[in-house]
Design a binder for these strands. Sequence first.
RNA 1: UCCCAUAUGGUCUAGUGGUUAGGAUUCCGCCCUUUCACGGCGGCGGCCCGGGUUCGAUUCCCGGUGUGGGAACCA
Length: 503
Amino acid sequence: MVRVRFAPSPTGPLHIGGVRTALYNYLFAKKMGGSFILRIEDTDRTRYVPGAEDYIIEALDWFGLETDENPIKGGDYGPYRQSERKDLYKQYAMKMLEDGNAYYAFDSAEDLERMREEAKENGKHVAKYDATVRMQMKNSLSLSTEETAALLEKGENVVVRLNIPSDRRIGFKDIVRDEVSFDTKELDDKVILKGDGMPTYHLANIVDDHLMEITHVIRGEEWLSSTAHHILMYEFMGWEPPQFVHLPLILKPVGQGKLSKRDGAKFGFPVFPLEWKAEETYAGFREDGFDKDAIKNFLAFLGWNPGTEQEMFNMEDLIAAFSLEKIVKSGARFDIDKAKWFNQQYIIAKDNAEIAEVIKPLLQNASYMGHSDSFILGFIELMKERVESYNEFVSKGYYFFEKPRIEDEKIARKKWKDENELHFTAIRTQMAESSSFDSDTVQGIIKGYIGDNGLSFGAILPILRIAISGTMKGPDIFGMMSLLGKEESIDRLHAGIEKIKAL
RNA sequence: UCCCAUAUGGUCUAGUGGUUAGGAUUCCGCCCUUUCACGGCGGCGGCCCGGGUUCGAUUCCCGGUGUGGGAACCA
């Protein structure tokens, strides 16, 4: 039975890279008929951000990445919040202590600082708390039993560190990267239990993954370097380690480094699934009008591909096609253009009624009230191929709900001829007299008039379009007029012509 | 600096000891549409570098370089 977990830390809003990690875990779990677990890694009390856990849950919920076990609904392996498992970790730290695989250390922040300074003076570029300095530090290895007991009694700066063996090669198999190995002399004696009694990530992680019977650890590549520590800890505990899968990181669109929360504002696109409001506000894909399925499809392809040329995948197909072996090894730059393209494709393919559910609140926010469902559905049909986000239905299609602003003044001026006055008066009269006003009828009236009077389409259509919608860009003019209705179309034609004349 | 990982058009990627190195996106052009968009067609653009093995290397080997990550009582 496959069991995987998504284990974010509630230190702020869930990053889009975290969403991808969650997605891959979910896809793998579903593919294998296994369980997908949410575990909250809140062991750092100084970085805890209220609301972050709710945000994580809401984001997963928005994407429909349902978890089988989580802090809210529980499960057979709970609790699922590490802060609630505090006592558990201590036991295992004690076990490692007893076996000599860990030791107490009593160094103060100043002691550690001094150690680092000295290392630097000795020409070392990296200062690690390891076998080379271990015996010069204040710990249960360097101190006598009595001294140790006294310091333990005092209780200041007491941490538990891993006793990393020297001269060993720790190797493991990563499903994406194959064999990876580290020399233990590169590894530091990591703190596993902190002064406040909380475990660090490393301890909590292996204890929980073991206790929760996690079979595959699918996480970001930033963890690759500490995996040797984890393997060693599984060994110390006599536990079977899970399979490891380190995902390539998502990089900035341009420049150096991984995608960060600042990049959103910098490049003008969201890097978070949902909007996050704190001292600063960070944009969210949802609020920016992205479709959740489009984002999932986009994210799935950032670091993975099925090896075929298909790239539009619904969840079911994605689950069927997904495999850990096809995960790409190198980091992927975040490309918002690709995300927008996926979004547009999804909007076009989406059922109008479904789109209506999403955009109705947006229309309300813009104070566009009181429109019938059929009007909204007709509006969606006309606009869906012309927007790349849900929000653009409102920003680009505003003139379906209020009087248009003349945007293409230059074209209007250029196309305006005095005789248009006469033509449009005649057209208005014909429209007023028409008993029906469907798209074909409107088209018949306009084209008929043009034909009967030996005019060119170019003499009439651009002015008509600008009068109705204010812009040269937009859906089929006859469809728009029909949807707007006879009264409104005639009114706009009249008012529009007056405005154009005055330009 | 050390360790680990990684390297195919601008970006996301497929793939191979002999291929015109494929797809997607972006950009450009044409067609469709007397608008825009969608769609269709076409184009620009690529195997990190240097050695070696080989009849032949983008592919295998060695060495560089670039890039990413890590080197916390953070995750």
